[in-house]
Structure formats: structure tokens, C-alpha cells
Nucleic acid binder design. Structure first.
Lengths: 117, 117
DNA sequence: TCCTTCGTTCGACCATGATCGAACCTATCA
DNA sequence: TGATAGGTTCGATCATGGTCGAACGAAGGA
């Protein structure tokens, strides 16, 4: 069977909405930098970048913080245009929008990710 | 005549110290991102990057904020290893450490700066 | 010498945002 | 139909950091 995948990155949509393709823009540099300038979020991005082809379950992207805190960080990343929600077989995933960010800010994510190593 | 230039980037040195070469390291990505994630500082970096070969007078790098606030931002940039103080003919300048940052985090500053345009 | 300019430091104030717990919703499963 | 699990929202708390004014020090010029 084929995966049922819907995407949602709109900032005002908090519950996943099926059917609408992702149209979110990568935010201005300022916003992107602010999103990355938090250790928890940077770790989330790092984990997503490990296997960029596969989206990740939310709970696989953090430890030692509450669900609500994690949800807050996901929202910041999403509103910066760095990630999007994908709904895979009924379970929510987070996907790093590598290509989209690369198009808008070429070199940023690669340098940040290699700088983490 | 040749310019008298001394450099100081040590975080614990608040008044310019002549004679000592710059030995400051570029800080971890986390710190660099946090330093860039402020509009005032990003504008300072942008102005410094306009003519990277020439350092700039401090007062040429900001508008509409108090001296003490500007000094605070200079300190954050310096402690992140992004800038250094240079003393040119007795007047204090700020210099963007393009090469040093590029060596540590290749592509970061170029992508941020082009993203500002 | 005095005065002005420039940058730093210090202390205080305040806005932003990171965090948590509780409640809610949806989907899945027994 | 419950019951459980995974995420989100809301409200509250608290720490971080951006901001300013005042005082200080160094450098340069009248």
C-alpha cells in the first residue's frame, strides 16, 4: 500500500490538516537564526538531519523535557520554515526541509550541522 | 606612515590591550548562532561585512540605541569570536573575523549575509 | 590644564521566551 | 465502549538577556 502523506506548515494550523500541500515559506534569516539559537531545537534539527530522507516521530527528537515544551519548540521550528509536519500512516512526523532552506539560505544548514560534529 | 594596530579579543579584557595578538577562538556553533540571532547585532555584522578589508569605527555600526547597549552587543559578538577589536592610530575599531569564522564554520557567514539582501 | 568625545562598566528595569503541569483531542487497540 | 498513548493548547512561573542612565577612564584638542 502507499503511504498516506499530508503536509502542514501553516503557522495558524495547529492540528494536522490533510489535503493541503506545504506552501510555507522559509522565514527571514533573522527568524531562522533565532530558531536555531536554542540548544534543544538545534539537537532536534541535528537528529532530523541524520536521516533526512526519512521523517521522524516527534518523540524521537528529544529527551528530558516535557511534551508541552517539545511541542513549543516544534512550533518555533515550523514557523521558521525549517520543518514541516507529515502525517504518515496516521502518525505524526517531523521532517527537516533541507532543500527548501538550502534554496533560500544556501550553505546555512550544512555549516551549522558540520559545526556540530 | 604605517598604522599602529594592536588586537584584543580575549573575553576578560575589557579595555584594549596593546601588544598581544589575537588568539581568540571562534565559539561553538550554538554561541555563534545566538550572537547572530539579534537584529541589532546582525545589522552590525552586515555593516562590517560591507568592507571587510577595513575595520570600522564602533559608532558607524549602529543607530538609535544607547552607547552602553551597543557596547553590550559588541561584547557578545567578540565573545562569540565573530569580531575583534583593533586599535588603529589610537581609535578603536571593530573588525569582522571573516576568515577565522569561515575556517571554523564554512559557509555560515556568507549564507547569512546573502540572506540579508 | 580643562574640556569634549568615545567606549566601557555597573546597576536597574522590563520584555521575551523556555519550562512545566493540567486539560483536551484524536487515533489506536483491547 | 473504555482505556491508553501521542501532541497540542493554555496559564503560570521563572531565567535570560536587551535596554537605558549614570559614572568612569582614556585620548585628543583648545
Amino acid at each position: 500500500m502507499t503511504d498516506q502523506v499530508t503536509r502542514s506548515t501553516a503557522t495558524d494550523v495547529c492540528t494536522p490538516v490533510p489535503g493541503l500541500p506545504a506552501v510555507a515559506e522559509v522565514a527571514p534569516v533573522q527568524v531562522v537564526l533565532a530558531a536555531l539559537a536554542d540548544p534543544v531545537r538545534l539537537e532536534m534539527v541535528r537528529r532530523m538531519a541524520v536521516s533526512p530522507e526519512r521523517s521522524e516521530r516527534c518523540s524521537a527528537l528529544y529527551d528530558d523535557i516535557g511534551k508541552s515544551t517539545a511541542s513549543h519548540h516544534f512550533k518555533v521550528l515550523r514557523e521558521a520554515g525549517l520543518t514541516e509536519r507529515t502525517y504518515v500512516d496516521g502518525t505524526l512526523h517531523q521532517r527537516l526541509r533541507l532543500d527548501e532552506v538550502e534554496e533560500r539560505l544556501p550553505g546555512l544548514l550544512p555549516s551549522v550541522l558540520t559545526g556540530l560534529a
